[in-house]
Design a protein around this nucleic acid. Structure first.
Lengths: 256, 256
DNA sequence: CGTCGCTTTGATCATGATCAAGGGATGTGG
DNA sequence: CCACATCCCTTGATCATGATCAAAGCGACG
């Protein structure tokens, strides 16, 4: 957690993370294996598409620095953001598994990505099964985030959705050392929030106002400060368990 | 497609499938490996919980026969269905990765499940990497279904959602030989649909009426007949690509 | 100084929720 | 064989959450 204070402070620049793929809990050896997969890092401008819906996609990326969104544009031009990609996340694995990418991914900040050819990723299963198992595990856990998002869209009010969204972000960013106890730094426009939560921009504006009036959250410039974590959590019915999987080691130990 | 006609006919009884885990495209050897993992099949009554939210879960299940839902009950009693499990699907893998199951799974029909201890599943990565790779691939592809569901909840109208939901079901059931060109058999109550799509029961009723009046879909008893697949597809903005991943073989061939 | 990206606000509208009843089926126990 | 219960579908009336439309404010930046 060394980088916490600097990362969460007002300092300018793209979010980055000490330990890429920290959630995988890789050993030094395993991390080296993953590094070997990667082609040289590529720097990406803010707002650039890394993966484009409808185009063939044969390379996945590890988002080393920066924030990105995975989204879909519907025929009437509406956008739905599927999820946010944070440093350490893989991008585009699923896209490679289909004839054409199903979603687009674009950066919200200046970013750095490490390309990995899918072929190599799959061969990992033969060459380094342990690492592959951890990847499998990691991807499975990510699905929990999708599911929670789905519950929010299906059954929660606008207020609850926004609260939940912000709590999830806080927690996820904390887990990679990019947020402190109650705040983080992110270029989070109201449009981004509305497209993530299936709401309109003006309504998100009103909801944010209410949250601010109630002393729960302030978003100013690119700083999100949660003034009352307890209450926001309660409002959102937020349980952070879905962001905190057991490690593979724990799983195996348990079933020996 | 041998079983199609009988499976999709009006014949009574739980849906079953010729080739369990057909989507994995396993070789005979690989299928044998998977069979070896399984404990003896267990028969499950209709409406029974296989996995309960909040409880520790150390066994996954392959749904051999029958239909199930994965869902979450919110504190106010509302239910959100995350997805439908069809024959051949794995159930509960994610639940095992957390301290407590995040969602419940219960059957909609009389079912048969084959329990598999997680430990064994994970050890598969060491012992049979090819099979593990296919599992990984299969799980990744499943996420596409979540994502599409998410887009529907976030940005589609009630009418589009229902249309999309039915088209997805038709396609998924066709892929496992449980639906014919335009119809399938499933105990699909309006409550199930409403909880899957984040709508109220009365409104689903009205939407279904409209679809019927427009000559697009009839649901009667447990039979769903799509009278106009073309038009329903168009209405739903349904692209079936997300249900048709490339095979691993294709992927590897492409990147040799 | 003007434009662009983002936020804010107000007025109006509509999609879909909620509330309340009733209406078949099917099934079950007396 | 009937009474009753249960499950699911249906319908109507009313309500409200959140969308839409329109316009203005407000930095930041070239």
């Amino acid at each position: 957690m060394r980088s916490r204070s600097s990362a969460a402070s007002g300092r300018r620049g793209p979010a980055s993370v000490d330990r890429p793929l920290a959630s995988l809990l890789l050993t030094a050896d395993e991390a080296a294996v993953l590094r070997d997969l990667q082609s040289p890092n590529r720097s990406v401008r803010r707002g650039q598409e890394i993966i484009s819906e409808g185009r063939r996609c044969t390379t996945v990326f590890i988002l080393t620095e920066g924030i990105a969104i995975r989204y879909r544009i519907l025929r009437d031009g509406q956008r739905q953001i599927i999820n946010l990609l944070l440093p350490g996340d893989f991008a585009g694995v699923r896209s490679c598994f289909f004839e054409n990418a199903l979603y687009s991914i674009k950066t919200l900040t200046k970013s750095v990505v490490a390309p990995v050819p899918v072929g190599r990723l799959i061969r990992l299963f033969d060459t380094h099964p342990r690492v592959a198992a951890k990847l499998f595990w990691s991807f499975s856990c990510e699905t929990a985030i999708y599911a929670e998002h789905l519950v929010a869209l299906g059954r929660r009010s606008a207020l609850e959705r926004v609260a939940h969204f912000l709590m999830e972000l806080l927690t996820r960013l904390q887990l990679i050392g990019l947020a402190d106890e109650r705040s983080f730094r992110l270029p989070l426009t109201q449009e981004t929030i509305s497209d993530a939560l299936g709401l309109s921009i003006p309504y998100v504006n009103r909801v944010l106002h209410q949250l601010r009036d109630d002393g729960l959250v302030r978003i100013k410039d690119q700083q999100v400060v949660i003034d009352n974590v307890e209450e926001l959590s309660a409002l959102a019915d937020f349980e952070n368990m879905y962001l905190k999987p057991l490690s593979i080691a724990e799983l195996l130990a348990e079933h020996e």
